[in-house]
Design a protein around this nucleic acid. Structure first.
Lengths: 203, 203, 203, 203
DNA sequence: CATGAATGAGAGTTCATTCAT
DNA sequence: TATGAATGAACTCTCATTCAT
């Protein structure tokens, strides 16, 4: 999925080792997604990965470490998906719409990610906070640029960035994770949200 | 704090029993807030409450049960705080501002609540989902009424409600839970968010 | 059921007390029969009896004590049933047949008794052993008398008595407790066993 | 002792594992024999076996599971001992005598087995019933064959089989488990019982 | 690098018994 | 005599981590 997990994991020296580490990471994504961090067990991860229990510690220092590696891996994947959906010629509002739509699609296809990143709040508060602060800053930057370009209001700042991020996250929760029969599709949700964002709700 | 915890707990038959149950609930709020659900322990809760370990099971069937009772208790408390901040003479937008401001103050004063309700996602997904769906519906209702009254756009629905809820939750996260030196105060955050809500971000 | 439980239980001073004690004993018979000694709980017994938990200790010193009282109570009941089935004019072999038949009927109607007396082996080995030794002696006595009367062989002793008791107990197990569709009735089983007893199995 | 415990236990993958599992089984036989199922504790079993508490769960799923494994193991052992005592050239009555004598000796040497199998009635009623039904069927078969061979009465069936089994079990209880100073030896008990079996007690 | 057995601290939970009312 | 809350020792079971092979 993502690529750089070096901070939280040990670096394999052989190709075979690299494959084993990847198998563990993939198995962990499923296990954590299915059962949550605390109910997940190392032995179940290694079972899913088809490797011996002891091998786990060849590649990760602890249960926390593989979780952290996974959060990094997935944060990266979300970021990449968002980047791919956006291009420089779009207007600021269009960018926000495209970003939300891509996020909704991504979350719908990888529901376990949502769960994992969200649980990070309790497992590894540092990385959880870092995750949202990074995103918040990126949004704030986009809003500022939009202001400079004259297409958005000029005084937008951190408050608006967090508000926008919260909107997106909760729309993901409602329409991607808890989706129901008859819900509007991702593009429709994104369109409505974008309209709220553009002109507010006042009559 | 709140009052009705009957579904998740056993009903004491004497006044003394009622006091003991209350002590356990209060101790649990602190324990869960401090260490999170999984790191919290029953024995630590009873120690904080000053009762014997076994007494816990006189009032709650399990660790899950007291957590559930607590979520109910606190959901109720948040609801009451919001209700008290609002009155019928307010305009729809003013209501939203007041609600957000009251939420920010409440969350700032009871940070542990945020943590507990949020962790419910992993401990008791049912009640977590129920919590947000209930709030989402209430907001949708307010938006609809505002539309009928002619002060808000007429076609607002569930998408806008969830977007608004997400805004509020994340502003609470950033400015009540993760507040920093130099941050704008609750009323200022509420004012800015309300402005975004009213007229959007377009120039 | 039986009557004298004085050795294992406290003596109530009032009529009301006597009724409460009886309720506890009856409830205990059901509880022990249903769940066995170790899975039975005092609180379940008091619940069945409709009295408060604490009242239990007004009438019995411990869980063991009520069990012992119950074994006495039931031993007595079995003895009485056997005595009623027999009369002095019967021949020794007829007596054995009548005793077995009455035991099979009794056990079929009070399956829980079998379970309770049998579990006594593990709960209160003393009384278990005493139970069977008493019965063994009584049988030995009957065999001896039959020998003196010239109707049975003259040299019958303890070995034959225990053999006969084992026969009876296992026929009770098989045809009263584990009875199946199509099994011979109590009188038929008693008839066959009596024939074995009378003339053996040799051709 | 016996050999096949596969249904109730996990299969070790190494020789070392096999040894540890055996140590646990042996320790459990002593512990259950000494204190009975409910008073036995896993920690005491592992202490006796000289392994860590947690290792228990590498080989058995629960306290019930090791008990079940043990009952299988011992049922098997009793069966083997009986088989070894018998040979095809014996007459039907001689076979019964030899079987009883071998059982008395076996029970005298492994008193804990009697206790364990008997307690199975309460711990694992299924296997208890299966144990006696299997033996009952085997005896019924032998009686039938003896009838065909013309040495026993022709109409012997299940009732006689259970009667015979009960005789043997109770003689084991009295003369192997509860043996006393001055009791007749195993061969003498078997001789007397065989005589009762052969020709009954009628004068 | 891989394997799987071994470890043991620590958790939740039960329940016989006591005690204050 | 009756009540039910309070007690705490004791239990089974889990699982992250270590280690010998």
């Amino acid at each position: 999925m993502g690529s750089d997990t070096s901070e939280a994991s040990k670096v394999p020296r052989t190709e075979r080792g690299r494959r084993t580490q990847r198998k563990l990471l993939d198995a962990a994504a499923i296990e954590f997604g299915d059962r949550g961090f605390h109910d997940a067990s190392i032995s179940s991860i290694t079972r899913r990965a088809g490797v011996a229990l002891g091998s786990f510690y060849t590649y990760f220092d602890s249960k926390d470490a593989i979780f952290r590696a996974l959060v990094l891996d997935m944060s990266e994947a979300v970021k990449v998906a968002a980047r791919d959906a956006i291009d420089d010629t779009m207007s600021p509002l269009t960018i926000e719409r495209a970003a939300l739509e891509s996020f909704l699609r991504f979350a719908g296809e990888h529901k376990e990610i949502y769960r994992i990143i969200d649980e990070a709040e309790f497992v590894d508060p540092e990385s959880y906070r870092a995750h949202y602060e990074t995103i918040g800053e990126r949004i704030a930057l986009r809003l500022e640029e939009g202001g400079k370009a004259g297409e958005l209001r000029a005084n937008l700042g951190e408050v608006e960035a967090w508000a926008l991020m919260g909107m997106n996250v909760f729309l993901g929760l409602r329409y991607a994770i808890w989706s129901r029969e008859g819900d509007p599709a991702a593009d429709e949700v994104a369109r409505i949200a974008n309209s709220l964002l553009a002109k507010g709700i006042r009559a």
